[in-house]
Write a protein that binds this DNA or RNA. Structure first.
Lengths: 122, 122
DNA sequence: ATTATCAGTTACTTTTTTGTGCCTACTTTC
DNA sequence: GAAAGTAGGCACAAAAAAGTAACTGATAAT
């Protein structure tokens, strides 16, 4: 049956963006290591499949968070990087990571997902 | 086959927590409206199923973000609320919402999920 | 001459997640 | 005396997400 679609929230889009497996990992690599080519990125995010990487990048691109530059050479060379918007996002991730680390340091943060999906992040 | 499990990230647990449908919505209601009983909460989060609400609350509870007080009356009365840790999380959500609203105001933030799961938030 | 590289795309399969409906057991209300 | 509310639990089915493998097309290297 259809999935319930409750009223939308100002954060919904943003969360839909950074949510989902690999996404933050990708953003992280991109902001730490700078613009990368597809293959580099794939190697930098160990375990990700081509399909997933493509999909996530397309999503981030559509959201205007990541740019894509394609050189019409053979073989093709495609480079991805963070847009200005993407860098704004980075600051959010930083503050998120801050709390995460604080909690981790306190050590009391146990997390046994019941039905939580895998997140796959760095 | 098994899902790929790449190296873990300091933010993984935190993201796994606030990720997933309804979760932020629930946290939001709890922090805006204060402690609530199960039924109230369910009505405050329109469209959520009993199963989902229970599951999310259990998860948040295990993470120490939400407390649960059960009155052994008949019928039973169970109340949920944010712990101190949960309130810390709130500040993160606030800053997240800040960026979200800014982007929304700019209007350039389009988001057509390719294979993004539903997030279901307020 | 076969193979590898690049950046994907497509189709197919499996795994995970979510919704639905039915049940509890007692009390208060219509 | 039947119905509704309370806080869920359980089993089953549907839907969505992610993995896998095979394919693209031209070139460069072995």
């Amino acid at each position: 049956m259809k999935r319930a679609t409750p009223p939308s929230c100002p954060m919904e889009a943003l969360l839909r963006l950074i949510t989902g497996p690999w996404t933050i990992y990708i953003l992280w690599v991109l902001s730490e290591q700078g613009p990368q080519r597809f293959g580099e990125l794939k190697r930098a995010v160990p375990g990700i499949s081509t399909r997933m990487l493509t999909e996530r990048l397309r999503m981030l691109q559509r959201a205007g968070v990541v740019w894509r530059k394609q050189a019409q050479t053979i073989p093709p060379a495609v480079t991805y990087g963070l847009t200005d918007r993407g860098k704004e996002l980075r600051s959010v991730l930083d503050s998120l990571g801050e709390v995460a680390q604080r909690w981790q340091a306190e050590g009391t943060f146990e997390l046994a997902p019941v039905s939580g999906r895998q997140l796959n992040g760095p």
